[in-house]
């Protein structure tokens, strides 16, 4: 019984994050998007949504 509560809690939080992430992905950016250089070239955090390697993945989700 004491295992069920944390797993349900984890599932709720994970579901909250996944759904907010998905909704955010589907919301289009206002005009002025693709303006996202921000000197991000030197940063190697490839999990960031602004990294150039993620552009095609975001593109294919939108279409």
């Amino acid at each position: 019984m004491q295992f069920v509560a944390p797993i349900i809690f984890l599932g709720l939080l994970g579901g909250l994050y996944a759904s907010s992430y998905y909704l955010n992905l589907k919301t289009p950016k206002p005009e002025g998007c693709e303006d996202l250089d921000v000197s991000c070239g030197s940063c190697s955090i490839s999990s960031c949504g602004l990294h150039p390697s993620n552009k095609e993945i975001i593109g294919e989700v939108k279409s």
Partner: peptide
């Protein structure tokens, strides 16, 4: 970490 991440997305 999940709350922070969800907050940022929202």
């Amino acid at each position: 970490i999940l709350i922070i991440a969800s907050f940022v997305q929202l």
